[in-house]
Design a protein around this nucleic acid. Structure first.
Length: 872
RNA sequence: GGGAGCUUAGCUCAGCUGGUUCAGAGCAUCUGCCUUACAAGCAGAGGGUCAUAGGUUCGAAUCCUAUAGCUCCCA
């Protein structure tokens, strides 16, 4: 019936995926059951499935599938993020290929192209997630730019504006001159580069004196409005009240004193350019300095620079250095390594730039968000992420939420005049008009007179509403879905977006639902290759996932990814681990082949009752460990325990114990038990390997249409018979010991052996006796009171086992002496401990008892060995 | 510069409130087996001064301090 000894997942996976989708097993609607909810971190709509998603979504799927098996109403909401900058870049690239320049398009025309692009490519990653087996309620698929989400964002913007959290202002922002947009602090990364530190002389006005400053950005000299030195710096005290002359442009600027300056750094004198440096800006505000912005939006110099107008900032830098050199004002040029900030989107060097932007005040939002985490109402796994979180929230800056882009939610601010305050904020133009008429006092204002802000909000300003907005909680507060599913149970995401996203979702959740958005956050690590390098396009070390799916099966890859990522650490990807997953699938497949290949006899058998008892206890024992690992979000530990239970206990021991001899039939009752256990094991494994477990379960019995392993129940067994577990271990030790003797003596497994056991507790062996005979090919098994001469021996716990064989007395003697020596040494260390008064006084009584038992055991072994040696 | 973390077998990591024969697992390696479920397998074996140096303790991989190396986050 089942021919191939190799499991072939290719057709099976597609078949069951379609079946699950057709039957609607992933769907969820509110009912009386306990909900278990996860909202998927929405991948960029531009994205393709990579290993990071695979890890992340496999973990979520495992949690969701387990909850579903536990009878909870599991709901996993999928979706994509419109990713304003990333997508806009893609669309611009696409247009460029067609020979179209964004600048030649109107906003509406551009957005039309963008939506077309989204419709065409935006579904790719979702279908890839389906292939992974992600059991999302696909009917709930959300997109951060769909109507509901768009309206939610606008509503929240207006609300926060009205509450005074959102304001418009001129601030120093990170400016990306290539994309010509502001970036949030989080979208900037720092790159270490070789650069030059220029030491430039400024003449002190009316003297022949010079003051030297050091700068890496000499072009900003043109925007200087002061020189600053430390008020206690003896070198410069005489310059109090003096002015300096800016080289090249000969502007006269004040020399100011502020303890912000580090006396030790460079020359101790700092040039202050308030328009082009965050710290200089602060100094400028404090000392009321002129702000001279010398850069255009595209990074070229403007008229305020006076020189090199129209030149790019980097070209200007060289030209200015040259001019200073020629004018004799360059004291020296040093080679240094420093860090420059770059845009995550365009990788261009970011300019600190003064710009009119929209901001969201964070302090009031941050406080409650910090509290719920510190008080563990909301738990982080691993725990140490709390430190990072706290540090950020305690030092939080206002959030620059405007972006000079088109693809995104357009800021709902409407301008009715040219004055700084001639605008209103409202959800629609109609509403804006009413307010604008009032504010302006001009009752004749019409919608046509209003001009909406050109900017959109930061992408994260939509995704921070995700856990609420996917249930329409912002537009329809308190609706049945949001009441049932919110707060969600767990968020699974990367540590890298703890600030961008996690912290802000907590803020938004508390602000709009007055409740945390999720109870637990499981942070995954970073994805690296075998050499520990980050996966990146430029390194080309990102494997082709679909090739790997084909090669090892999706189940195999899911297992491989988990094995590569122990307990939430970094994912160090190695294909080898997928091979292990595939081999595991094959092992299970062959267990099925064994069971399906057996002939059945109706004769009832009782000889395996002890085995059933033992295996049921073994499963319970593992179940406790598995559940515990799940509770602690140690998902790969849960998998490893399941793997061991199935491979080592079920396949290697249980099946071998119940397997009839070759050609013999199996008793129906034994087969039924076996199938029952196999089914239970498949349920435990299902969250990890959904496809093969469905296939096996379907094949294990007669199934009706519409049945599925997904609809079964997670075991809640709790047998705990310690004795039978111990007897099982004794049985294994005995079998292993006999096999060892065979191995060491080059005896074929076909040659049966006599075994004699010297034990005061025969009952420990009795229950499994007949099985040991079979597993270890034992001809006679008997119990003895005395040592057996001319035999190989080994220990099972403290019992001695003898196998009569030709023995080399000298070898045996040596082995025993070695063992004796070891035990004597061990005894000494135990006795030392026990004779130490302070140990006996201070140690826990249980520990002392354990030590006494160790002592007794060691003494017994020593006695036995000594007797044995004496008898030789 | 500030913060967090890591360093245990060849590799990836467990080791929870110090105390079982505590030095572990999986993979890899080696040896022997095509033993009729499975060579994608079976039966075995070897392999580590728990980064280094101090300290606390009756007792330290585990707690403390310093040093070195690595990683991440923030400025």
């Amino acid at each position: 019936m089942l021919i191939d000894t190799k499991y072939d997942p290719s057709e099976i996976e597609g078949k069951w995926l379609q079946y699950w989708l057709d039957k609607g097993f992933f769907k969820s609607t509110p009912d009386e059951r306990e909900p278990f909810t996860i909202v998927m971190p929405p991948p960029n709509v531009t994205g393709q499935l990579h290993l990071g998603h695979t890890l992340n979504n496999t973990l979520q799927d495992i949690l969701i599938r387990k909850a579903r098996l536990q009878g909870k109403n599991a709901c996993w909401v999928p979706g994509t993020d419109h990713a304003s900058i990333a997508t806009e870049n893609k669309v611009i690239e696409m247009l460029a290929e067609k020979g179209i320049n964004k600048k030649d398009l109107s906003r509406d025309e551009f957005l039309k192209y963008a939506w077309e692009w989204k419709e065409k490519y935006g579904g790719i990653i979702l279908s890839q997630l389906k292939r992974l087996g992600a059991s999302c309620d696909w009917d709930r698929t959300a997109f951060t730019m769909d109507d509901n989400q768009y309206q939610s964002v606008i509503k929240v913007f207006v609300d926060l504006y009205n509450k005074g959290h959102i304001y418009k202002g001129v601030r120093m922002v990170n400016w990306d001159p290539m994309r010509q947009t502001a970036l949030s602090d989080e979208e900037v990364y720092y790159k270490e580069v070789n650069s030059k530190l220029y030491h430039v002389q400024y003449q002190v006005e009316g003297t022949a004196d010079f003051i030297t400053v050091a700068t890496t950005r000499p072009e900003t000299i043109l925007g200087d409005s002061a020189i600053c030195v430390h008020p206690e710096d003896d070198r410069y005290l005489h310059l109090k009240g003096k002015k300096a002359i800016v080289p090249l442009v000969n502007r006269v600027i004040p020399i100011i004193f502020d303890d912000y300056v580090d006396k030790e750094f460079g020359t101790g004198a700092l040039k202050v350019t308030p328009a082009h440096d965050e710290n200089d800006y602060k100094l400028g505000m404090k000392h009321n300095l002129e702000i001279i912005d010398i850069l255009n939006a595209d990074g070229t110099l403007n008229e305020k620079a006076q020189l090199f107008v129209g030149k790019d900032r980097f070209a200007a830098r060289k030209l200015i250095a040259q001019s200073l050199e020629e004018g004799g004002q360059m004291v020296k040029v040093e080679e240094i390594r420093n860090k420059v900030s770059c845009s995550e989107r365009s990788h261009a060097v970011v300019e600190p730039k003064l710009s009119m932007q929209w901001f969201c005040k964070m302090k009031d939002l941050a406080e409650p968000a910090l509290k719920v985490v510190l008080e563990e109402e909301l738990k982080f796994h691993p725990k140490n992420a709390v430190n990072t979180y706290r540090h950020w929230l305690e030092n939080i800056n206002d959030w620059c939420i405007s972006r000079q882009l088109w693809w995104g939610q357009r800021i709902p601010a409407f301008y009715f005049g040219t004055g700084v305050n001639d605008f209103v904020v409202a959800e629609t133009a109609e509403k804006a008009l009413l307010i604008a008429r009032e504010k302006s006092g001009n009752v004749n204002l019409e919608i046509a007179d209003l001009k909406q802000d050109e900017d959109v909000v930061d992408t994260w300003f939509s995704s921070w509403l995700w856990p609420t907005a996917v249930f329409n909680g912002i537009n329809d507060p308190g609706n049945a879905d949001v009441k049932y599913y919110y707060p969600t149970n767990v968020l699974v995401t990367g540590q890298d977006i703890i600030f961008f996203w996690v912290a802000r979702m907590i803020m938004a959740g508390l602000e709009y639902e007055h409740e945390i958005p999720f109870k637990d956050v499981y942070f995954t690590g970073m994805v690296r290759d075998k050499q520990g390098r980050k996966m990146s396009k430029s390194l080309g070390n990102s494997p082709d996932l679909f090739e790997i799916f084909d090669k090892y099966g999706v189940d195999g890859v899911r297992v491989g990814v988990l094995f590569s990522s122990p307990a939430g650490g970094d994912l160090i990807f190695d294909e080898k681990q997928c091979e292990q997953g595939r081999n595991f699938a094959n092992k299970i497949w062959n267990a099925l082949r064994l069971i399906k290949g057996l002939e059945i006899t109706e004769t009832e058998s009782t000889e395996h009752n002890a085995v059933f008892e033992w295996f049921e206890n073994k499963m319970s024992e593992s179940l406790v460990k598995i559940n515990d690992a799940f509770d602690k979000y140690r998902i790969s530990d849960a998998l490893l325990e399941t793997y061991r239970l199935i491979w080592d206990e079920f396949c290697a021991w249980y099946l071998e114990l119940v397997k009839p001899e070759f050609g013999q039939p199996i008793a129906r009752n034994v087969l039924e038990k076996t199938i029952q256990y196999f089914e239970e094991l498949m349920i435990l494994l299902h969250p990890f390997m959904p496809f093969i477990t469905e296939e096996i379960w379907q094949k294990l019995g007669e199934r009706k249409a519409g049945e599925s392993i997904m609809l079964l129940k997670w075991s809640s067994k709790k047998s705990n018979n310690v004795l039978v577990l111990q007897q099982g271990e004794i049985m294994k030790d005995l079998v292993t010991g006999i096999r060892n003797v065979r191995n060491q003596n080059n005896l074929s497994p076909k040659e049966s052996l006599e075994v004699k056991i010297k034990t005061p507790q025969r009952e420990n062996y009795a229950v499994f006796e007949h099985l040991v005979r079979k597993l270890a090919n034992v001809s006679t098994l008997e119990y003895v009171l005395e040592k057996v001469a001319d035999a190989k021996s080994f220990l099972v716990k403290t019992d001695e086992v003898f196998i009569p064989l030709e023995v080399n007395a000298e070898d045996e003697r040596e082995r025993m002496l070695k063992e004796l020596e070891y035990n004597k040494g061990f005894l000494i260390s135990v006795e030392k401990k026990l004779s130490n008064e302070r140990f006996v006084q201070n140690a826990n009584p249980q520990v002392i008892d354990a030590e006494r038992k160790k002592k007794a055991d060691a003494e017994a072994k020593i006695k036995m060995l000594e007797e044995g040696l004496a008898g030789m």
